[in-house]
Design a protein around this nucleic acid. Structure first.
Lengths: 235, 235
DNA sequence: CCGGTTACATGACAATAGTCAAGCCAAGTG
DNA sequence: CACTTGGCTTGACTATTGTCATGTAACCGG
């Protein structure tokens, strides 16, 4: 089968990579592509789940609208990442809404194709469980951050996740709007600005949507320091 | 089989209830009971998962120790609730630690029994997925709360979850220490005290470990109000 | 009943984060 | 080249939460 570029990316996604080639081919043949423009909605909270989504290009945010009208961003996905596995397999409604934060290309695997495959090869169900567990784990990590770190520390970790290297210096590109970054980190855009200012003291320079990290280890030390302790360091 | 009381409770847990009676019998025959005293540890973060845990009596907290030494409580489970399904099935390490917050009785189903069962009846895997998805959903809800509500509002929701009734007045018992409640809600014990004080204005009276809610709807209105708006009400 | 411990409450203060309003700056448009 | 627009930053102020210290009430073993 002559794969185009986007199909290649889909095949390399964490989810499809875990299936056999035959299974993947079957799923791909039943799936369809979809492009979304920035700010376009993929699906809404409480809507019945019809597909698993694999992001092939761009960024998608999952969020919830709170009783009082605010929005709380739950996670943000990009190239190679998938979401909606559990709901598609179970046929329950989406617990979140999804919206493209940049122009985005997505592969959508119909829930029917998935359930069908799991019925034929139950082992595939465990693969889905693995994916779901990954999300669970990510949420736990996020909870920990929210409960135990200040806004500025969360920003620091966010930057650290963006850079591939483990030490030395690093140059990263902020992948989407600061409003979205702030939401993802559970703070207001204004606070994000101030957090960036504060991080200057730790060797981080931000201009437009580029951030330069002078010393990764120093930034990590800051992000892991006790909120109550680190001010003593600079009078 | 002559079930004792605790076995009855286990059978009625959300997890076991979803299996066939035969499956449940098989699992029960391979499981073992364990009692823990308050503050005793069930397992530690990064330890290899050997069992699924079903709480039959008491309360268990799942928490993570952060890089700087603090603890972030992820969830708290009680009678009829289970945790560790996904890790047991996949054999990955626990992403959290578990500790009894009261004297506690737990049924532990060995991971081997679970994987064995899923291999024989793949449909059972979907049941496990359902349980995992429930946890996922709870974490999403918690994230939303942390990001979109003030401490006092989260306390209000916590009280509302404790009371069975939907309207009118209600008397609830705080099930465990306030330090743990505060941790669960992502605030310090002192802030919890102050939150309780603030809730007096909304018809909540707390003494020792009992809370009286005068009007459930009024409390709900408060918990769902816009954090920025509700102040104006009392100058 | 006493001393000691535990759990919780409160007050004073510092720090973090939100709100509202104004300003800046780069990019696009007429 | 103004002129507007959108995205971001800043400042001033307020609110919320954490910290530290201290007080108080219940409980427990002698």
């Amino acid at each position: 089968m002559a794969d185009d570029r986007r199909t290649q990316i889909a095949r390399n996604s964490l989810l499809l990579k875990s299936f056999t080639e035959q299974q993947t081919d079957m799923l791909l043949s039943m799936s369809h592509w979809h492009s979304y423009q920035r700010n376009q909605t993929l699906f809404q909270q409480d809507e019945k789940a019809r597909s698993i989504h694999i992001v092939v290009d761009g960024w998608v945010k999952l969020y919830r609208i709170t009783p009082n009208g605010g929005e709380a961003i739950v996670s943000v996905f990009t190239k190679g990442q998938s979401f909606g596995e559990a709901v598609a397999l179970r046929g329950t409604p989406y617990p979140v809404s999804a919206e493209a934060v940049t122009d985005t290309e997505v592969l959508q695997i119909p829930a029917a194709a998935v359930t069908e495959m799991v019925r034929r090869d139950p082992e595939a169900g465990v693969v889905m469980l693995a994916a779901t567990f990954t999300h669970l784990h990510a949420l736990v990590a996020q909870l920990e951050q929210l409960k135990a770190q200040t806004g500025a520390q969360r920003v620091a970790e966010f930057l650290l996740e963006l850079c591939e290297r483990e030490e030395g210096s690093c140059l990263v590109t902020l992948p989407y709007d600061k409003v979205v970054i702030a939401g993802r980190l559970g703070i207001k855009p204004e606070s994000l600005s101030r957090a960036f200012s504060k991080l200057k003291e730790f060797g981080v320079k931000v201009s437009r949507n580029n951030a330069a990290i002078e010393d990764i280890q120093r930034l990590r030390d800051f992000s892991e320091s006790d909120p109550a302790a680190f001010w003593n360091k600079r009078p």
